[in-house]
Amino acid sequence: MTLEIIGITVLWTFLFGYILIGAIDFGAGFFNAYSRITAHEHTLTKIIQRYLSPVWEVTNVFLVFFFVGIIGFFPKTAFYYGTTLLVPVSIGIVLLAIRGSYYAFETYGARGHKGYSFMYGLAGILIPASLSIVLTISEGGFISMVDGNPVLDYWMLFTSPLTWAVVVLSIAATLYISATFLTWYANKARDPEATDLLRKYALVWSLPTAITAGGIIFELRRHNPAHYVNIQDFWPMFLISALMFIGTVWLLWKRQKYGWAFILLIGQFIFAFYGYGASHYPYLLYPYLTIYDSFTNPAMAISLIVAFILGLGLLIPSIVLLMRLFLFDKDYVRGKGDYHA
């Protein structure tokens, strides 16, 4: 295993963490806002807020970790992606800022404020859409070199069916992941009404997730044939992913073992995400940038990996403590103790 592979695996794992935790978070914000409009407020708000409150800040760190890490391990990405992504990522930052701050404003300052809930619900659901554009751009074809500087072709980007397929997938998957998780959480909190409603949402969003995921692979065949061929080499991973998806939907349908349904969902996304990542190898940006020609020097790589291991030694126990106190604490989940400052 080379340093390059270790680096990209660590980063890809954190990106996966962000996508999973972020999806739960953004979807929850959206369902919260939606339930207020459709007067399901009493059913959902409590469950969602109990989950979100202690963890919202942690979500954001996964993203920061990813983009700081990628500059550290692959400094050349700063040049290619930094120059071209000014507009899409700036929009993403604005959405993240609105989402994060208005969430805090509503939760700690003006509980129940409809305008704030709506703002962060909407901003949250647009974040995956705006950030997923980066993945589309990485497929190549949208960036050309002019006078030695990379330039992004917006017209081409926004008229490409691939772009829109990825956007729809990101939104559908966000809502699907979030609804499945919250179904389990609501069930654990012994709130049958909320469980039923969230289970319905999960089933509703499962189909668009599956269809767009398939559609993207199909789209890649036209857009980036090399990547399409690579994907086929990893067919067992995508097959396992599909089977796990069916398993989740089956359990949800049968109203059984919501915990397992969510674990299968994590598995489904792990296999799909790593399968996609592995087939993207070795390119960070088709066809300009691979993980090898953009890699940092060995001294920096080793110090980053050492720092990472030491950091994990500190973080994992902390995260376990956080989960034990809130996610897996029966009294907390059922809303028996409110110890907020």
Binding site: S53, P54, V55, W56, E57, V58, N60, V61, V64, F65, V68, G69, I71, G72, F73, P75, T296, M300, S303, L304, A307, F308, G311, L314, L315, S318, I319, L321, L322, L325, F326, Y339, H340, A341
Partner: peptide, 24 residues
């Protein structure tokens, strides 16, 4: 890049315990 990377850990650490502190 090393201190930038370490900063995210410091921030991570702070975020986790702030969440715990506020709700306990």
């Amino acid at each position: 890049a090393l201190p930038l990377f370490l900063e995210t850990f410091a921030f991570f650490f702070e975020a986790i315990f702030l969440g715990i502190y506020l709700y306990t």
